[in-house]
């Protein structure tokens, strides 16, 4: 597949005006192969005849529920599904995700968010290899972190990273520019019963800084947010 925007997306929603709007605005955003149907019956026909790459499903449809259609769909294909529903109960959300949906969004929604989520799902599903390469390195100042190799390249030298340090860096990089709490970091490394590891976490962070930062005592990228957690400084 050449371009993510050429992915064939099928929207199933009984509100025609809403479908028109989504098609129009997604079209503006570059998704040109998008269609809409308004009932389970039509969706069923599409499922049998067409190769769809992403389903956007409403839950309440005039001739059935999006959940039961999803079950039918899963028996035939592994195609990604995003629920877009007016039902915001936790139960509905959990049911949808439990059925294997890739995402669950509630109405009303921001178009920007829908586009971002659709893009993310498509990338994850169909463009993973490219993404992987892109994600596999991280430039922090003069240090280049190579996740696949588990090393930091800095001033022509290679410094190896431990598994825990890699996990930490990855978690912080995934949330770059945002604070990640001690708890979330500990949980990433030690799993659910992480209580009591806060001091060990500090030790790991100090080592990481020594490997990455030019001045470990005055970090530029791996910042401490007192009382809360750590943050990887945003782009730059």
């Amino acid at each position: 597949m050449k371009d993510i925007h050429e992915s064939r997306i099928l929207l199933v929603d009984d509100n025609r005006e809403l479908c028109d709007m989504i098609l129009e605005l997604m079209g503006k955003a570059g998704f040109i192969n998008m269609k809409a149907v308004h009932s389970i019956e039509e969706a069923q026909r599409k499922l049998e005849r067409e190769q769809v790459q992403l389903w956007i499903l409403d839950v309440n449809l005039p001739d059935g529920s999006g959940f039961s259609f999803m079950e039918k769909l899963r028996r035939q294909s592994r195609c990604p599904v995003l629920f877009l529903s007016a039902r915001d109960e936790d139960e509905d959300r959990l049911r949808g995700l439990g059925l294997g949906a890739d995402d669950y969004m509630t109405k009303p929604f921001l178009m920007k968010e829908l586009i971002l989520r659709v893009t993310a799902i498509l990338k994850r599903t169909y463009y993973y290899p490219d993404e992987q390469k892109e994600r596999d390195t991280l430039q922090l100042g003069e240090s280049l972190v190579d996740f696949a190799g588990g090393v930091v390249k800095r001033e022509g030298r290679e410094i190896s990273l431990t598994a825990k340090e890699l996990l930490l860096l990855k978690k912080l990089a995934d949330n770059r520019g945002k604070i990640v709490t001690f708890d979330a970091l500990c949980e990433t490394i030690w799993g659910e019963s992480y209580f009591g590891y806060e001091n060990t976490l500090m030790v790991h962070m100090r080592r990481l800084r020594e490997k990455i930062e030019r001045e470990p005592s005055r970090p530029r990228y791996l910042l401490t947010v007192r009382g809360l957690g750590y943050k990887m400084e945003g782009k730059g």
Partner: peptide, 17 residues
């Protein structure tokens, strides 16, 4: 509140565009 959601989606969507 369920019924308001869909119309509100459209208001938000078009306003955004």
């Amino acid at each position: 509140s369920h019924d308001i959601r869909t119309p509100l989606s459209m208001i938000m969507g078009y306003a955004e565009s």
